[in-house]
Simulated assay, not measured.
Amino acid sequence: MITGRVVDRRQPPGPQAAGEHRRPARGEPACTFPRVRSALELRLGRQWRSRSPVDAVTASWRRFWDLEFASPVSKELLMTVRPFRFGIVSALAPTAHDWTTMARRAEDLGYDTLLTPDTLRTFSPFPAIAAAAAATDTLRFGTFVLNTPLHAPTATALNTMTIDMLTNGRFELGLGAGRPGAETEAERLGIRWGTPGERVTHLADTIRTVKETLRRATASTSTGPGQLRPVQQPRPPILVAGQGRRLLRLAAEEADIIGVGVGPEGTEYDLAAKVGELRDIAGDRFPRLELSMNIAAVGNDLPDWMRPMLGGTDPRELAEKGSIALLRGSTDDMVDTLLRRREALGISYISVNATFMDQLAPVVGKLAGR
Rank of each mutant, 00 (worst) to 15 (best):
T3G: 13
R5N: 09
V6L: 14
V7Q: 15
R9L: 07
Q11Y: 03
P15R: 05
Q16P: 03
A18D: 10
G19M: 07
G19V: 08
H21D: 13
R22D: 11
R23C: 04
A25I: 02
P29F: 09
C31P: 07
S38C: 09
A39C: 06
L44V: 08
L44W: 11
S52I: 09
D55H: 13
T58N: 06
S60L: 07
F64V: 11
D66P: 02
L67H: 11
A70L: 09
P72A: 08
P72V: 02
S74T: 13
L77A: 15
L77V: 03
M79N: 04
A91Q: 14
T95Q: 00
A96H: 05
A96M: 07
A96S: 02
H97E: 13
D98I: 03
T100W: 00
T101N: 06
T101D: 12
T101C: 08
M102K: 07
E107T: 06
L109Y: 06
Y111A: 04
Y111D: 01
T113M: 12
T122F: 07
P125R: 05
P127H: 10
P127S: 08
A128E: 00
A134K: 05
A134F: 03
T136N: 01
D137R: 13
T138Q: 15
F141N: 07
G142Q: 01
N147A: 05
L150K: 08
A152E: 12
T154E: 14
A155C: 10
T156S: 04
T156P: 04
A157G: 05
T162K: 06
T162A: 15
T162V: 15
I163W: 09
L166Y: 06
E172Y: 06
G176E: 05
A177I: 04
E183L: 02
E187N: 03
I191L: 06
E198I: 00
V200R: 12
L203N: 05
L203T: 06
L203D: 11
I207T: 12
I207L: 07
K211Q: 14
E212C: 05
R215V: 02
S222Y: 10
S222L: 13
G224A: 03
L228M: 14
R229D: 01
R229S: 15
Q233G: 03
R235H: 13
P237T: 14
I238W: 08
I238F: 09
L239G: 01
V240L: 09
G242K: 00
R249G: 05
L250V: 08
L250S: 02
E253H: 07
E253W: 03
G259A: 14
V260T: 05
Y269P: 00
L271E: 07
A273R: 08
K274H: 00
K274M: 09
V275F: 02
L278D: 11
A282D: 04
F286C: 00
P287W: 04
P287R: 08
R288K: 11
V298E: 01
N300D: 15
M306A: 12
M306Q: 15
L310F: 02
G311T: 10
E317T: 13
L318T: 03
L318A: 10
A319K: 10
S323P: 03
S330V: 02
D333C: 05
V335W: 00
T337K: 12
T337E: 14
R340G: 01
R342A: 03
L345F: 01
V352K: 03
N353F: 12
D358E: 15
Q359P: 00
V363A: 06
V364C: 00
L367W: 00
R370A: 12
